[in-house]
Design a binder for these strands. Structure first.
Lengths: 233, 233
DNA sequence: TGCCGCCTCACTATTTCTGGGGAGTAGAAA
DNA sequence: TTTCTACTCCCCAGAAATAGTGAGGCGGCA
């Protein structure tokens, strides 16, 4: 366990994550170990020990929108055993049958992980065995898996070039106030009233913030302020 | 460590979390252990070992919008040492001085945690000691803290099911498109053009999304969609 | 002292958004 | 089959936001 985390922490590049997942698989003696990054924009990225055929099929069929593991974990915080997910819909059952046929295994355990800006990922371990055996195994390694999932995601975020933290100009306190109340749904009149200033003044702040944030309108400015963590709503 | 996690997992009710944080504090011999939940509506909830005076002061002054620990962790995935945060702004320095005066401690380590629907929380340990001592301590217990933070949040979500889900109704694909482009700064006309639909139709989506999100206007709807992780910009 | 950023207030004209209403199609679920 | 949701289109009047311009006072910094 210790050595796995250390190898993971020292991993450099996506190829290293690939071999890390193989190492984890061998260490725990399970069939598959997979890390799957999804963002709500629909982009995905993954690495792990599933066969290329299955991975390509998954992408090609856009199973992201069907896979009960994704759908179920997206609404949860807890790591979850696949048995507790909802496999009842027809597309889900089709998907399940196909997954098993591709060697995914009849048992699975997935840890949902979330990062800033709505980033979402899954760390999954799957295996073929009976229910009792799987329950014993997951019970014994649940904590390990949480830590591994966390470290895995830490690395994936690190390698994601997307995270270029655009050095943004700080907003003045009044500008922060303005953006915050706007994000809370107040109209300009209400914000001005709340801050006890004239609406004209408020407008100056909004325009100033919009300029600093390089935004085209108020909604854009609020969105940028939020995604840069300049306001907390 | 094991016993702490087990006690935490068996905790029932918020009072038990309160005493769990005291147990963690005593076990690790630090000054404070705090769990702090921040809601997409701006509501907060916390439990831990800070003094009542400091907690009330924090709420009363709305330090949520100033606290560099909140602002910094909100943009990160990694657990972070307080020294690495940005304390340079004047309000931040005022806040820092006051926090230390209230016995918070000059060192701190915070683990950001995220759940479904944009839920965000912090698990923080703080202490008074020199830098080397703190570095040694955090290095030794980093993994423990991640697991404890995870379990703590699991419990908090369990006890407060009403906090996150404002019936977090999912948006339809077109609604997601609309919210996404609006968050990117497009005007309604531009979004309609981009999606190749009439502006009238677009407006239906926006209103529908606004209704589903319980938002008062477009800006509010976009802000909520973002903080609930329904769109990524 | 002069410069700069921040906070405050004002006017006008134009564009955009909001909140009512109504209506038809397709496909999935019950 | 019926019912429901998602998607598409349309009108209008009033409210709100935007783009320009302007001003003066306060505090920090060099």
């Amino acid at each position: 366990m210790e050595s796995i985390l250390e190898d993971l922490e020292q991993a450099e590049g996506l190829a290293a994550l690939q071999s890390a997942s193989e190492e984890i698989r061998d260490h725990y003696g399970v069939d598959h170990v997979v890390y799957h990054w999804v963002d709500s924009a629909g982009d995905q990225y993954g690495c792990g020990t599933y066969s290329d055929v299955w991975r390509d099929r998954y992408l090609e069929q856009n199973y992201l929108r069907v896979d009960p593991v994704i759908l179920g974990c997206f609404q949860r915080f807890h790591p979850v055993d696949w048995k507790r997910l909802d496999w009842s819909s027809k597309p889900a059952r089709t998907f399940q049958a196909e997954a098993i046929a591709h060697g995914v295994g009849n048992q699975g355990f997935s840890v949902p992980i979330r990062g800033p800006n709505g980033q979402f990922a899954l760390f999954t371990v799957s295996h073929s065995c009976d229910d009792d055996m799987w329950a014993t195994w997951t019970d014994a390694h649940r904590r390990d898996l949480i830590l591994i999932a966390h470290t895995f995601n830490e690395k994936a975020l690190e390698f994601e070039p997307d995270r270029a933290p655009e050095q943004s100009q700080a907003l003045s306190p009044r500008e922060v106030d303005a953006m915050t109340f706007l994000a809370m749904g107040y109209s300009r009149a209400q914000v001005a009233d709340t801050l006890s200033i004239s609406e004209h003044t408020l407008r100056v702040y909004i325009e100033s913030a919009r300029f600093k944030l390089g935004a085209m309108n108020t909604t854009h400015a609020v969105a940028r302020a939020m995604s840069r963590g300049l306001i907390v709503v």
